[in-house]
C-alpha cells in the first residue's frame, strides 16, 4: 500500500500522532498542496474518467490499479473541479467566489479519512447496520387512503392534483 514517496510524508508521520496532531498536520499539508497545480490536475483527470464511465462498478477497473498499487489518498488533493463535479451530482450550486473556500474545507474534511488507510480490513465484512436482524415483511394490504389534500399543503406548486416542475424534456 505504502509505496508513493513524496506526498505521503505527512501521512506516514501521522500514524504516530494523535488525531488532533494529525488533523493539524493535515491542515498545513492541504493548505500547502492546494496550489500544486500538477498533482491537482492529474487527480481531476482520474476522477473524471471514473465518473464518465457512468454505471457504478464498471468504473472500478479504471481506478483499480492506482488503488491496489499505491494509495488513492495521495492523489486526493482536491481542486475546485472535483468539488464542482460532486456539486453537480448532488445538485448543489457553488458560487464562484466561494469555490476556493468550499474546496479547501471539502479537501480538509476528506483528508481526515486517510486515517483509515492504516487499518487492515482484508476479509472484514462491511457493516451496514448495527444489528444482525432480518427484514420484517408487511402483509399485503391497503392501509392508506387518499391524503392528497393534506400531503400537498406543503407543496410549492400544484395544479389539478399534479406537482408542477419546470418543463422536463426526456
Amino acid at each position: 500500500m505504502d509505496s508513493t514517496p513524496a506526498p505521503r510524508g505527512h501521512l506516514a508521520n501521522a500514524s504516530a500522532l494523535s488525531v488532533r496532531d494529525f488533523i493539524v498536520a493535515k491542515l498545513s499539508s492541504v493548505r500547502h498542496g492546494k496550489n500544486t497545480t500538477k498533482s491537482a490536475s492529474s487527480s481531476f483527470v482520474l476522477r473524471n474518467e471514473c465518473i464518465n464511465v457512468g454505471v457504478f462498478g464498471q468504473g472500478e477497473s479504471v481506478v483499480a490499479s492506482p488503488l491496489s498499487h499505491h494509495s488513492v489518498y495521495p492523489a486526493m488533493i482536491t481542486i475546485p473541479a472535483d468539488v464542482l463535479s460532486m456539486a453537480q451530482l448532488a445538485r448543489l450550486r457553488i458560487d464562484e467566489d466561494a469555490l476556493d473556500d468550499v474546496s479547501e474545507r471539502f479537501g480538509r474534511t476528506l483528508q481526515l479519512v486517510a486515517e483509515l488507510e492504516k487499518i487492515d480490513t482484508e476479509g472484514v465484512t462491511p457493516m451496514s447496520n448495527p444489528h444482525d436482524m432480518n427484514q420484517r415483511l408487511r402483509p399485503d394490504s391497503v392501509t392508506e387512503s387518499n391524503q392528497r389534500e393534506a400531503l400537498q399543503q406543503n407543496a410549492p406548486a400544484v395544479a389539478d392534483g399534479f406537482f408542477l416542475v419546470p418543463k422536463v424534456i426526456d
Binding site: 471514473c50 465518473i51 468504473g59 468539488v83 460532486m86 448543489l92 471539502f106
Partner: peptide
C-alpha cells in the same frame, strides 16, 4: 459533498 464523494464511482 463529502458523502457524494465517498459513494461515487471508483
Amino acid at each position: 459533498l463529502v458523502g457524494t464523494y465517498a459513494l461515487s464511482a471508483g
